[in-house]
Computed example of a mutant assay.
Amino acid sequence: MEHYIIQNFGPNLKRLRQKAGLSQTDLAKELGIGKQYLSDYEKQKSYPTFANLDKIACFFQVNSSQLFGTIKESVVEDRSSDLENLMDEFCELLEKRLKQSAK
C-alpha cells in the first residue's frame, strides 16, 4: 500500500494539539473553524483548505515537515527546536554571568 504525505497530517495535528494541552473545541475556537472540521482532520475523514492549513501552521508556529512529515521527522524537528531554545537560554545566562563578573 502506498503512503502519501497527506496521511501524516491528521496524526500530526492531533499530536500538536495535545502537546499544546488543547481540546478540539478549544483549538477550533482559536482557529475560527467548527469542531467537527477539526475532528474530521484528525481522523483523516477530510483535509483542510489552504486557508485553514495556514491558520493551523500559524497558530502552532510550525513548518510543513511538522504538519506533513512522519512522526520520526516531527520528533527530530521538535528536538532540534528544543536544542535551539536551550542554546539561547544558555547564551543569555552566560552573558548575564559575564556582565556580573565584569562589575
Rank of each mutant, 00 (worst) to 15 (best):
R79T: 03
I56F: 02
T70F: 04
I71H: 14
L67Q: 01
F68C: 03
D40N: 13
E77L: 12
V62L: 04
N63E: 15
V75F: 10
K19M: 10
D78G: 01
N63P: 01
E89P: 00
K29P: 03
D88E: 14
V62D: 01
D88N: 13
V62T: 06
T70N: 05
F90Y: 14
A51E: 15
S46K: 09
N12L: 07
C91I: 12
E77N: 12
K35V: 11
I56T: 03
C58S: 15
S39G: 10
E84N: 14
Y37E: 11
S65I: 15
S80K: 12
S65M: 14
Q18H: 11
F60G: 01
A28F: 04
G69E: 08
E42Q: 09
N85R: 13
D54N: 09
S65E: 15
T25M: 12
K43I: 03
S81P: 02
Y37H: 12
Q61H: 14
P48M: 08
L83Y: 08
Y37P: 00
F59I: 02
E30V: 02
V62P: 00
G21M: 08
L13T: 02
R79G: 04
S65V: 15
T49Q: 08
S23W: 01
Y47S: 07
L31F: 01
L53A: 10
C91S: 15
R79K: 13
Q66I: 07
S64A: 13
K35N: 12
L53K: 05
D78C: 01
K29H: 14
T49R: 07
F59Y: 15
Q18Y: 04
Q18P: 00
Y47I: 03
K55R: 15
G32C: 02
S80C: 09
V76H: 10
K29R: 14
F50Q: 14
A57E: 03
E89H: 12
V76A: 14
K19F: 03
P48C: 09
Y47Q: 11
E42N: 07
G69I: 02
